[in-house]
Design a protein around this nucleic acid. Structure first.
Length: 422
DNA sequence: TCTGGGGTCCTAGGACCC
DNA sequence: TCTGGGGTCCTAGGACCC
């Protein structure tokens, strides 16, 4: 019998905010997206108050605060650092693991022989992370990735449990799947859920029982894998080394609306600069840069969405060339008279840095392209801690004029914000 | 007044080849 | 009246994830 585990941090961002604030132990906490727009994380207490995931902050603000809830702007420096600590601990416990997201990891429990050992491992793992980092986690153990998700779900909802759930025999699995709506299954979103409901399939158990050929014919190989995984057949492997990225996106919503091209230009340039930094950090080069701008979909006024791309004649990682490309596109897609609320840049068509296909012909655009690796390395080094060199096209205030009014200190990543004690 | 950001995979269909 | 067959590559769009 194979044992896989999913380690999932409880309400991760909210838990991070609590690590250095023991006074907030039982207090409802929510964390907001950029511009303090939406609720993106909630503590157990905030969930109990009926605060929904993704709800616009302005809609719940008053009621939430008058009931004594605490609120934070997002502090990704803190969450990223605490995540790294959790992952390091896990890495020391198993031979093979996959970091799936900032707050989740799959583990290959090759050394585990039976259910008792699995439980013991889960509890040990949970206690260690709790003690060393201060973050509560829950652990789902099962023979396939999809079933570890189910087990984790059970560990979350089972009252008074140890935060560990192990599903390893058909009878237990069938019992749980009968109570689980298909929407809760990993890989089944709103759309598939609706379509399956129309076919009379509501519970995970019913889905598991459905003829695999029918699933393949009506849907796709993706759903087929999910069904097989529910049956205990492992189809999705643990990927212990991250594949290189295939695209890099930098995008933001604006605090207000922007109608003026001259105001938009330097913001797009900031996205381009940031994207190029990420690209070099990934040690990749891109052949295509795309820019998109859009009005608010919540707005009743006429909408406009612009998207276009620029191809480089050969793969590129020089910020100046990416800036040049993004400027050309913006001029093309910008339409006068629309209040834009969001924009972004996308780098794609990456190529392996050691196999660079050169262009056969020198185009006119190409003559404007710049590529200077040494210069870029020097600028990256100077800007690594704090931006010291800006491009003339940039807006000096940062990525975009973002509001973060309630952000907690960078307790673990900035000397000047270390927690102090009296 | 105020509604996030960053990714992946798969498929259908078009363009093109001989 | 009747207009082949088999293949590859690329892209847009749709689905999903956290």
């Amino acid at each position: 019998m194979k044992f896989l585990a999913l380690v999932d941090c409880d309400n991760f961002y909210a838990s991070c905010e609590r690590v250095f604030r023991p006074d907030l132990k039982k207090v409802p906490i929510v964390v907001l997206s950029n511009n303090d727009g939406c609720v993106i994380a909630r503590s157990k207490e905030a969930k109990a108050m009926g605060i929904k995931m993704g709800v616009p902050w302005f809609k719940v603000k008053k009621a939430y605060l008058t009931q004594g809830g605490k609120v934070f702007s997002s502090n990704f420096a803190l969450y990223g650092d605490l995540s790294k600590r959790v992952m390091n601990i896990l890495d020391g416990m198993v031979k093979k693991m996959e970091i799936y997201s900032i707050d989740e990891a799959f583990l290959d429990l090759q050394h585990i022989q039976n259910k008792n050992q699995a439980y013991e491992f889960g509890i040990y793992c949970r206690n260690t992370i709790r003690q060393w980092v201060g973050i509560p986690v829950r652990i789902g153990i099962a023979p396939t990735k999809t079933l570890t998700k189910v087990a984790s779900h059970v560990a979350k909802h089972a009252n008074g449990g140890m935060g560990v759930c192990c599903l390893n025999n058909q009878k237990d699995i069938a019992h749980i799947l009968k109570t689980l709506p298909i929407r809760e299954i990993w890989g089944i979103g709103n759309n598939l859920s609706r379509q399956l409901n129309q076919m009379g399939i509501y519970s995970a158990y019913e889905l598991m029982q459905t003829d695999i050929r029918l699933i393949r014919k009506k849907f796709s190989v993706v759903l087929e894998r999910t069904v097989r995984e529910l049956r205990g057949e492992s189809c999705i492997q643990i990927e212990d080394h991250a594949d290189p990225k295939k695209q890099i996106v930098v995008s933001r919503s604006f605090r207000g609306k922007i109608e003026n091209l001259e105001v938009l230009k330097p913001l797009i340039s900031n996205f381009a600069v940031r994207a190029a930094e990420k690209l070099r950090h990934e040690k990749q080069k891109c052949s295509q840069v795309s820019v998109f701008i859009s009005t608010s979909r919540f707005n009743k006024r006429p909408q406009h969405r612009g998207f276009s791309s620029f191809q480089f004649p050969y793969p590129m990682d020089d910020t100046r060339s990416i800036l040049m490309g993004s400027k050309k596109i913006l001029a093309k897609i910008f339409k006068e008279g629309y209040p834009y609320s969001k924009a972004g840049i996308l780098l794609s068509h990456f190529s392996h840095p050691t196999f660079i296909q050169q262009s056969l012909f020198q185009s006119k655009d190409q003559q404007n392209l710049k590529q200077n690796t040494n210069l870029m390395e020097a600028i990256d080094a100077l800007n690594s801690n704090q931006t010291q060199i800006y491009y003339a096209a940039q807006h000096p205030a940062g990525l975009s004029p973002i509001q973060k009014s309630m952000v907690s200190p960078k307790y673990t990543t900035n000397w000047w914000e270390l927690p102090t004690t009296k």
